[in-house]
Amino acid sequence: MTAKKLITAGGVSIVFLFIAGCTDKPVLYKQGEYQGKLDSQPWSNAQFKGERVEWEKALKARSQGQDEYSRAATSAN
């Protein structure tokens, strides 16, 4: 009788073990939060060597280049 109970208990536990194997893995997804790869800063490279100020200077110079009034004034001087 005890052996039969043991076999039944063992069988039931094996069934539960198999069922547990079929369940989904816990999802780490968080609603509303970016889940992708992290991006690096545009100044964190060999050209700017992490110098944000240098990068901003380069960009500002380019931005000012879009103003033909200031370009004309510079070339006139």
């Binding site: 100044w43 050209q47 990068w55 960009l59 380019r62 931005s63 879009q66």
Partner: peptide, 10 residues
Amino acid sequence: AEGKLPACAE
């Protein structure tokens, strides 16, 4: 990352 603006604007 090269210190340039978008190509369309430039």
